[in-house]
Amino acid sequence: MKLSTGSPSKAVLRGAVVAAMTAALAGPAAAATAAAPTATPPGLSCDTGKHEVDDYTGYALCRNNGSTARTFWVHLVCGWSPDVDGEHVTLNPGQSGQSTAHCAGLGTGIGEIGVRP
């Protein structure tokens, strides 16, 4: 059986399939973008980094420059392993504190470090 490729209905069907596949492939990319760590929460000034002898341990060292108590935690994007969050730290105005977290050893280490409110 020979199928004609010039039929308008088949062209519409091909267009719909291409559109559906494009949307399906774009979905994971959009979700990954939405999951990216956020900027430093308002009222805090933070330094982030990796432990100097362990590429799997990251930290956020923050100071509360605001006028009310603030809570934060470090968020590590861990490559092949699941992402992890550190302990929640609440700081009163003027206080400093640190949150740490550790990526699983099976992965590729820390890919990104963020601070979450």
Rank of each mutant, 00 (worst) to 15 (best):
M1G: 11
K2I: 14
G6F: 15
G6D: 10
P8N: 14
K10P: 01
A11P: 02
V12T: 07
V12H: 07
L13F: 15
A16W: 09
A16C: 12
A16Y: 08
A16K: 09
V17R: 08
V18M: 12
A19Q: 06
A20P: 06
M21G: 09
T22L: 15
A23P: 03
L25F: 15
L25G: 07
A26W: 12
A26P: 02
A26G: 05
P28N: 10
P28A: 08
A29V: 15
A29H: 12
A29I: 14
A29L: 15
A30Q: 12
A31R: 15
A31E: 12
A31Q: 12
A32M: 09
T33A: 14
A34T: 06
A35W: 07
A35N: 07
A36W: 02
P37R: 01
T38G: 08
T38N: 11
A39D: 08
T40P: 01
T40M: 00
P41V: 02
P41L: 02
P41I: 03
P42G: 09
L44F: 06
L44R: 01
C46G: 01
C46H: 00
K50T: 09
K50N: 05
H51L: 03
E52R: 08
V53E: 13
D55H: 05
Y56P: 02
G58L: 03
A60D: 00
L61I: 02
C62N: 00
N65A: 10
G66D: 05
A69Q: 13
T71K: 05
T71N: 07
T71M: 08
F72E: 00
F72V: 01
F72T: 00
W73L: 14
W73Y: 15
H75R: 07
L76R: 02
C78E: 05
C78M: 08
W80L: 14
S81L: 05
P82G: 14
D83H: 08
V84S: 03
D85C: 03
E87N: 13
E87C: 03
H88I: 08
G94N: 06
Q95T: 06
S96F: 04
G97M: 09
G97D: 06
G97H: 14
Q98S: 11
T100C: 03
A101I: 02
H102Y: 15
A104Q: 15
G105Q: 10
G109Y: 13
I110C: 02
G111C: 04
E112I: 03
G114R: 00
G114Y: 00
R116M: 12
